[in-house]
């Protein structure tokens, strides 16, 4: 009788993710048997098979890693071309219709991903949906220095906020940043960035607008990116201030004059605060963004539960891929 190879570890990722490849190479070298499910890759069939007829030994895993979960991609949108009746009504409400499809899928996926059981889950599926405002308030309650933040729909409230902050205010998304591709043939990529809201911009704003987040502008000495894994902080300093193009948001990468990096260490009290915050959020891993100001403050900005560890691991030689593999296999495969 041929015994099936026991799949002990389950990894949800996307195709062509080199960070996942690297961790899985380490898991293989430790003797870990894993199943990788790429969530952007004909996923419906796989899920259907898994749910209706789970393979023996696959119901309980030694570990599960929710590395990346792919949302509804633009190319999956329903365009209404195949509708035979009431085509016009649907096509004029496609956004609305696709939001409905998105909710349908999300409800199913919430059920689906929660159905995988393990004692050891890295990036639990549930708390991945963080509310940035909750996180900021929690961080402040933990004792971390957080930026003065306002969410408002009213210009006069913004003006009063601005008057209290001589160094200026910035605007950024309350939730996630927006990315989309423009029409062919250019197919330009569009995205919103953190921007300074000058008095001139405020003057031109209407009296009311939609909910917007405003924050005190920080006079950066450098940014710190902290990768948190199972109680430990792996930190990197990012020096971007020398370059006006990246001075507010370093996602505007400048290839010719790249940001400089250095291994960095938070002090003990700050590391304990990070640990406390992550525990309260129910996260055993994530990336934290902080800013060191020129007057010596260490200001917490946000947590990304599915942080890119490769961009910290390689420049700082932290071997995070191996550490993640060790966490997932709990060091007992061999």
């Amino acid at each position: 009788m041929s015994a099936a190879i026991p799949v002990r570890h389950l990894v949800f990722s996307t195709a062509y993710d080199p960070s996942t490849d690297h961790v899985l190479d380490w898991m293989a070298s430790m003797g870990g048997q894993f199943l990788r499910l790429n969530t952007n890759n004909q996923y419906i069939e796989k899920e259907d098979a898994l749910i209706s007829a789970p393979a023996p030994g696959m119901e309980k895993f030694r570990s599960i890693w929710f590395r990346k979960i792919c949302g509804l991609a633009r190319q999956d949108w329903i365009l209404g071309d195949s509708l035979r009746e009431d085509r016009k009504a649907f096509r004029e409400n496609l956004d609305f219709f696709n939001q409905y499809i998105e909710r349908e899928r999300k409800t199913f996926y919430d059920y689906f991903y929660r159905s995988f059981q393990s004692e050891r889950i890295l990036s639990p599926y549930e708390p991945i949906q963080l509310n940035k405002l909750d996180v900021l308030r929690l961080a402040a309650a933990t004792g971390m220095d957080t930026p003065k933040t306002l969410v408002t729909r009213k210009k006069d409230v913004l003006e009063r906020f601005r008057a209290e902050i001589p160094q200026g205010v910035i605007n950024k998304s309350i939730a996630e940043h927006l990315f989309f591709e423009g029409p062919p043939p250019e197919k330009n990529m569009y995205s919103n960035y953190t921007e300074e809201i000058t008095d001139e911009i405020i003057r031109e704003m209407p009296d009311t607008f939609d909910f917007s987040l405003f924050q005190e502008k920080l006079d950066k000495a450098f940014e710190a990116r902290v990768f948190y894994l199972d109680g430990a902080c792996y930190s990197m300093a990012i020096f971007s201030q020398d370059n006006t193009r990246t001075s507010l948001d370093f996602r505007r990468y400048d290839k010719k004059n790249p940001n400089r990096l250095a291994n960095f260490r938070l002090d003990e009290r700050q590391e304990a605060q990070v640990h406390s915050l992550m525990q309260q959020l129910g996260l055993n891993t994530g990336s934290l963004d902080l800013v060191r100001t020129r007057d010596g403050r260490m200001v917490f900005l946000e947590v990304n539960p599915a942080g890119q560890f490769g961009m910290v691991s390689q420049p700082c030689n932290y071997h995070l891929e191996k550490r993640i593999a060790s966490f997932l296999t709990a060091g007992n495969e061999r």
Binding site: A262, F264, N317
Partner: peptide, 19 residues
């Protein structure tokens, strides 16, 4: 760069490993 906080900028570990 110069810094007056040397403890915040530790040296990189130079070990190399491959799976």
């Amino acid at each position: 760069f110069f810094t007056s906080q040397p403890e915040a900028f530790p040296a990189m570990d130079l070990t190399w490993e491959s799976p």
